[in-house]
Computed example of a mutant assay.
Amino acid sequence: MSVLPLVFTSGWASGVNAYAVVLLLGLLGATGVSDDVPGALQRPDVLIAAGVLFLCEAVADKIPYVDTVWDAVHTVIRPIAGGVVGALLAGQNGSLPELAAGAVGGSAALLSHLVKTGTRMAVNTSPEPASNIVLSVVEDLGVAALIVFAIFHPVAAAVIAAALLAAGIGLVVFLWKRVRAFLRRRRERRLSPQPRPFP
């Protein structure tokens, strides 16, 4: 069976939270739940590093504007992680060239990362911090659920990941139109002459 659906799903998930993907896949392999996980992801040093970085992301991702800086730094890291995980999965399976798998995983990670970053920037215009925290928790739980589901049902998980990616792109376009309109109205209000008070 082709490993392409698992590569695509892990790529999409890496764009949202690469450390969670590496940690979850590594744990699923190390505990014997799945034979599809390459040994490189099951190494104790990889699991420890992924766990520590996952905890850092779990904190940074819930603080408005800190999450934007974190996402900016990870614009390079997440697509690379998606590509590496994809290539490792392909090497383990042997049904897809590693270079092609790396390209699929990296591209899916880049697209989902851009969706996440755009959504977060739009959410940060909201004055309250709760929406950031809720969105971060939903992302983390979604990544965990989809990666575990992908191990057992890779094709169905890939369809869900593709639908989430398409919906995310549509949401970012919608949100950015609203944010730009809001910023334009605010700028016009600030630049419009104010009525002079009567003496």
Rank of each mutant, 00 (worst) to 15 (best):
V84S: 08
G82I: 01
N124S: 09
V46C: 11
V137G: 02
D35C: 02
K116A: 07
L96W: 04
L89S: 01
D36P: 00
I63P: 05
A13I: 07
R43A: 11
R120A: 04
Q92V: 01
R78G: 04
G15T: 08
A130Q: 12
S131Y: 13
G102F: 05
L88F: 15
G91P: 05
V7K: 02
A109M: 07
G142C: 04
P44W: 07
G83L: 08
S14L: 03
V73L: 14
P64G: 02
L25I: 14
S112A: 15
D71W: 01
Q42Y: 01
Y65E: 11
D35I: 03
A60V: 06
S131E: 14
W12C: 10
A49S: 09
A20T: 13
L110T: 09
L110D: 08
V37P: 04
V134S: 14
F54G: 15
V52D: 00
I48S: 06
I80Y: 08
L53M: 15
L110F: 10
V134H: 12
V73P: 00
A49T: 12
G118V: 09
D45M: 02
D71P: 01
V16E: 07
H113Q: 14
P97W: 05
C56P: 00
D36Y: 02
A103V: 15
V137A: 14
L110R: 00
G118N: 09
A108I: 03
D140W: 00
R43N: 08
L4E: 14
P127G: 06
W12T: 12
L25H: 11
V37D: 03
R43C: 02
V59M: 06
P97E: 13
R43L: 12
G105R: 01
P64D: 11
A60C: 11
T68C: 04
L141P: 00
E98D: 12
S131K: 13
